[in-house]
Write a protein that binds this DNA or RNA. Structure first.
Length: 226
DNA sequence: CATTTAATAT
DNA sequence: TATATTAAAT
């Protein structure tokens, strides 16, 4: 029962992924995570945006003991993990996200920590879109990293996530009879979200940097090393 | 060297 | 748990 998507945009190869997004149930159908999950008092304290209808995604701000992040552009949601033991000090450029210099490790200003990446829905969204636009064939870690253009994101990060993502796709639309109810992809916080709700006010983090624009690759001087 | 996959480690 | 890291095969 595979029905074609509406409004064939001309892209053929990426139909699969798009179908995946469209096949998702709406929050109204089965998502007890609507919003009355947290008492209004608490919500106000944490500035959680509770929306009545539409994309119900609270703007999480508590990843570090400081919620002052507000990035205008791509903002990596790294998490500062403590409990660091000894072990080397790898060089690592800071995520120059406009003053979001969260120095997890104070000291002599030598910040270089391999932060464990948190794939927030926004980042995952970018990931999915990048894969969709690259097609089933060109969706390789290197290209995905380039298209996402998220500073600090490495090829290994994407490769690891891509693994899980592919497994998820295989399980849902692999065998004609995908045994058992769909195993939902569960990254960090929420699993899926609507591509976009063309209703309600102010759209949230939803980038549109793809489409028919190669978007000048800001990756300056990235000589193909080999 | 890059990618995919499985197994493993944190 | 989710993500990273490794090893082997391509």
């Amino acid at each position: 029962m595979e029905d074609d998507d509406d409004a064939g945009a001309g892209f053929g190869a990426c139909g699969r992924v798009l179908e995946w997004e469209h096949g998702l149930p709406t929050e109204e159908e089965l998502t007890p995570l609507s919003h009355p999950l947290v008492p209004p008092t608490l919500a106000a304290a944490f500035r959680i945006d509770v929306r009545g209808t539409g994309t119900a995604f609270p703007s999480l701000a508590f990843d570090c003991p400081v919620f002052a992040h507000n990035s205008p552009t791509s903002h990596l949601s790294f998490r500062c993990e403590d409990e660091d033991d000894e072990e080397e000090g790898e060089e690592e450029s800071e995520d120059a996200t406009s003053g979001s210099g969260s120095s997890c490790r104070g000291g002599t200003g030598r910040a270089g920590k391999k932060a464990r990446m948190v794939w927030t829905p926004e980042l995952h969204h970018r990931f999915v879109e990048a894969v969709a636009h690259l097609g089933d064939k060109g969706a390789v870690p290197k290209a995905i990293v380039r298209l996402m253009n998220v500073e600090g994101l490495t090829r290994e990060n994407v490769a690891s996530h891509l693994q899980k993502y592919r497994i998820y796709l295989k399980r849902t639309r692999g065998p004609g009879k995908p045994q058992q109810p769909p195993p939902t992809f569960q990254p960090a916080y929420g699993s899926h979200f609507r591509p976009q709700q063309p209703s309600d006010t102010s759209s949230r983090s939803d980038y549109s940097a793809f489409s028919t624009s190669p978007a000048a690759t800001a990756r300056s001087s990235n000589a193909t090393k080999q």
